[in-house]
Design a protein around this nucleic acid. Structure first.
Lengths: 209, 209
DNA sequence: TCTCCCGACCTACCTG
DNA sequence: CAGGTAGGGTACTGCC
DNA sequence: GGCAGTACTTTGGCGC
DNA sequence: GCGCCAAATCGGGAGA
């Protein structure tokens, strides 16, 4: 299984391709960071990111694209570009017909470190070890992208419910799987549809780091 | 001059093509609203929006694409899809090599109604009148998209931010007679105001649109 | 080029 | 003329 | 299909 | 097993 992990960002967007099996040894295929200069018009920056992601998908032909979900507090301004970048990643994947998975920062940390509260350095270190790299991926964002990819392989794209972006309006609370049935209004007939959608529901936004 | 106005949204994304000259009579070329169902995976929804926008650009060959700028308050979740949609519009335009303009809701209202505080109904009414439509554009988002397009034609592209960054200082449109936006230097209290806005937004209940 | 630190919406309208 | 202030949205759910 | 109402962050960790 | 608590960011510019 090959996964393209994406750490969305406007100035720096991390891209990392990881290969391996669930529970097996993982191998880093490629890693890079897309940089766009502040003086360039926004649409150009986004376009650059978009094209780069599409190029990577075309080149590496991943089985899935994993995007780090966005977490935004009240500080909105900074996340916009990030969110847009994540959207581009999602569209690029959808356009290529590739499976999509999203992961929150906590999930990623928990996946690679075993602790959702893990320090950033910890994550980098673990990524380096897991992929048996000689040295830590240089721009920090690269490591994060790889971490997301790892999370995708180990935890699977089986994300829960809706995304933050959609403004779920329905805090599911604890049990995700159980909540699926509870949520559907016309659960009997639509159950199948919902299950399907839910299974594929690795959507949502991206997060920042 | 032909402009594609976009009112970004995930569930409903308004698209409106307006044609005319600055200060001249305007004509509506086309209008529509892209709808995507909540049960569809996010990436699919975004893809649908993206493709539709690209199709419209290809079909109508606008000279510019105008996008309504997003203002995010403390409520983040709802804007995500919106922001992503706007990003898609920007990229679609950039990809097609079309000029891009962004406009805040206030700008749009001011451009169309002469009053930045204009009611939504007012905007719809003015759009209907300006474009000499028999009836108001059906979904409200459609009217908004048209309004954005109108604003683009009448006020020109809003890329002051880009200008400042690029140092070109070259407003794309031809010179306009009206008052130019004067930058308010009052940045000192920004934090305070932000905190205030945030606090207010958190406590009070939101009104309907 | 990478690192570290700081700051965090944008406009229109009304009032003095 | 300058400064300060207030305002601005959306996606989901249920119902008509 | 359209209109109106409401809520608006999420998640892992730890304690109970 | 359930519930409550606490924490989480990124982009721009200057300096090494």
């Amino acid at each position: 299984m090959r996964v393209l992990g994406v750490d969305p960002g406007l100035t720096r967007c991390g891209l990392g391709v990881v290969e391996g099996r669930r529970g097996g040894t993982l191998r880093m295929v490629a890693v890079d960071v897309v940089r766009t200069a502040p003086e360039v018009p926004l649409e150009q920056r986004l376009l650059a990111v978009s094209q780069r992601i599409e190029a990577w998908i075309a080149e590496h032909g991943p089985d899935a694209v994993a995007v780090e979900r966005i977490f935004a507090r009240s500080d909105v301004s900074t996340i916009m570009g990030t969110v847009q970048a994540s959207g581009l990643a999602l569209v690029a994947a959808a356009r290529a017909g590739v499976e999509v998975g999203t992961h929150t920062p906590s999930e990623v940390k928990a996946a690679v470190c075993g602790n959702g509260r893990a320090d950033k350095a910890q994550v980098t270190a673990m990524v380096t070890r897991i992929l048996a790299l000689d040295s830590p991926p240089r721009p920090a964002d690269a490591a994060d992208a790889l971490a997301v990819g790892i999370a995708q392989i180990w935890r699977g794209g089986g994300q829960r419910r809706l995304d933050a972006a959609a403004g779920t309006g329905r805090p599911v609370g604890a049990g995700w799987d159980d909540a699926v049935a509870a949520q559907a209004p016309a659960r009997q007939r639509a159950a199948e549809r919902w299950a399907e959608a839910e299974r594929r529901a690795r959507q949502s936004t991206r997060r920042s780091r």
